[in-house]
Design a protein around this nucleic acid. Structure first.
Lengths: 209, 209
DNA sequence: GTCTATAGGCAGATAGAC
DNA sequence: GTCTATCTGCCTATAGAC
């Protein structure tokens, strides 16, 4: 799976296209290596030389595509949050009732935890604010805002109890997020998805009318 | 508040006592400075020189009391986890019913978040595994194990529904922990304690019989 | 035990050839 | 656009005076 894309998506002439493809490849290779290293070793224990070596490109190339090390982390973060926001938006648009959509969110997050633990690790665990000081907290990012919208709509429709919106969101998602952390820490006996029905029964009881 | 103590607590003769007190002071001053800097700037953005300057001691003194920078972080972590374990043990020993004790745990964590956000920040957010590679995940530490014991006991007594122990623990604590993260991220309108009753109502519904 | 001064190493970033 | 070689600075840790 390659989640990274070039900034420019418009069609280009043949000669340029080859260059553009090469750009795209290199950018993606750098970001793939960065994701792997940042999520396993951590941002600060990963040097640009490590990324260079694992991606199979030169230092010069890296600094041609990214202003500095921090910009690599930021681009990676933006890509992953955008991807997650896209998934949330699709679930939001499905038109199902609140319980169905919110459970689908949990199911999606669990599936992502299993298929791409490094992505989950990076988004949840990387302490972005330590090396991306200007970044808003993750809870202000698009995917989390969409989840809150689902909760709000559910309350308006009378599917969730009337209560503080933040409390309701924390309550309906907190347990699932906690299980994801436990899964990433390697302390769950079984794959996290196998707990979906049981944890969702609890989560839904906590906010249902 | 001074949470740090010397390794040796036994009585000593007068001359040695003065030296020991001095030791204790310096060790505590180093750890206090480290907590402040690690939780605000982060471990990797904090140099030993920063700690030295803020603690008002010399580099030599720091390396006399601690083997290296990592050992400072480890000592700090151990102190804080031990303190938290002590609080949990006291709640566990109170002899109240499960709901009362588990709510007391949430109340205590909320209060600590408000009175000492840096402690909470450090324990929850510091990505210990990036700079303390041999450390067990936080969920295997004493305070979390005690919480799980409360949940287990509650199930045995029939106060909680029968279910997987990990799921129940995640469910009963997940929402509160989520709120603590939100509070530390500065996105809550009011102090986190003010949400205690509302969030606990949700959490308890999620696991109660 | 505490201090200052400094060694030694490595990381981030740049210069400039091709 | 990509590469190699290198610079510069900071950081951890130590040496050695007092």
């Amino acid at each position: 799976m390659n989640i990274h894309s070039n900034k420019r998506g418009e069609p280009v002439e043949v000669k340029k296209e080859k260059i553009s493809r090469r750009n795209k490849d290199i950018r993606a290779m750098i970001l793939d290596a960065a994701l792997d290293l940042f999520s396993t070793r951590g941002y600060f224990s990963t040097s640009v030389h490590h990324i260079q070596k694992q991606a199979g490109v030169s230092i010069g190339s890296i600094y041609h595509h990214f202003k500095n090390k921090e910009a690599i982390a930021k681009a990676l973060y933006d890509d992953l949050v955008a991807m997650m926001g896209q998934s949330m938006a699709e679930i939001m648009a499905s038109g199902e009732n609140s319980e169905h959509r919110l459970k689908a969110v949990c199911a999606h997050l669990f599936a992502l935890t299993e298929s791409s633990p490094k992505i989950m690790q990076y988004i949840l665990y990387a302490r972005h604010r330590e090396f991306m000081p200007d970044e808003l907290p993750i809870c202000s990012s698009r995917p989390f805002v969409i989840i809150q919208d689902m909760v709000r709509e559910g309350m308006e429709r009378g599917e969730l109890r009337q209560m503080n919106l933040t409390v309701a969101s924390a309550s309906v998602m907190g347990a699932a997020i906690r299980l994801i952390y436990l899964s990433l820490d390697g302390v769950l006996e079984k794959p996290v998805s196998s707990y979906l029905d049981e944890i969702w029964e609890c989560s839904w009881k906590s906010v249902a009318v």
